[in-house]
């Protein structure tokens, strides 16, 4: 795996080669899950939750390979806790500490070189598929909003320039001021985005299964 110089700063520290990695064994991963929780189902949920938060953490730091950095962090955590489970009582705090080391190692790496055009393959098909699903899902998710929220968000984002200012002022009168209106519109959008992710994934899977038949 290449973690590249993906974060936004370059340190003057001398790059140390990372220690040689061996793939995480099933046994180590099992012990890691047990460390998270003795209940299998709860352990799996916790693992996914931690993973999601770690990816977010690296994105917030401006990294371009958050998924890779998260995998590296969790592999290291799993290896260490499988050896000494009692040494680390708080999973999230320990993951945070390891993530910082992984990130510091990553920013010490030299910048990426220019790509050789001849080594690149360009898959495009799934992008088109995704766009089609996106539009359907936006329609569906906005339709599924409660009437009041749908009206608010549609009005909030429907106008430009001076008209936008007038409409938002009018809307704000019924929503406790412009600040509150902005917060409400933002929350609805965050919920819409979560709904869209699920809807789009489902739509793509449905299409793929139809194509393979």
């Amino acid at each position: 795996m290449n973690y590249g110089n993906s974060c936004n700063i370059v340190t003057a520290m001398i790059a140390k080669p990372p220690p040689p990695k061996s793939p995480l064994t099933a046994e180590e991963f099992g012990k890691f899950l047990h460390w998270l929780s003795p209940d299998d189902e709860r352990a799996a949920t916790m693992y996914l939750e931690i993973r999601k938060e770690m990816v977010k953490k690296f994105i917030r730091k401006g990294c371009t390979n958050s998924e890779d950095l998260t995998d590296e962090t969790l592999d290291r955590v799993a290896r260490n806790v499988s050896r000494e489970p009692d040494r680390y009582p708080n999973p999230m705090a320990y993951c945070h500490g390891v993530a910082r080391i992984v990130w510091l190692e990553d920013i010490r790496k030299p910048p990426q070189e220019e790509l050789d055009p001849e080594k690149i393959s360009v898959p495009q098909q799934e992008d088109w598929d995704f766009k089609e699903c996106e539009e359907e899902c936006m329609q569906e998710c906005v339709d599924n909003l409660p009437e009041r929220e749908r009206h608010l968000i549609t009005q909030y984002f429907s106008f430009q320039g001076r008209e936008k200012i007038v409409v938002r002022k009018r809307l704000a009168e019924g929503h406790g001021g412009l600040g509150n209106l902005r917060i409400k519109a933002c929350r609805i959008r965050i919920r819409l985005n979560v709904g869209l992710d699920g809807c789009i994934e489902e739509c793509i899977n449905r299409r793929q299964s139809t194509e393979t038949r």
Binding site: N8, G62, C63, T154, F157, S158, N193
Partner: peptide, 29 residues
Amino acid sequence: HFLRPPERQKKLRRAYLLNRHLAARGAEQ
């Protein structure tokens, strides 16, 4: 900085499309 991660670029693109979709709905209404 903010738009360096591809996930954020995707989010920006999605937000742009969602705005367009909402504006079109508003115009219809």
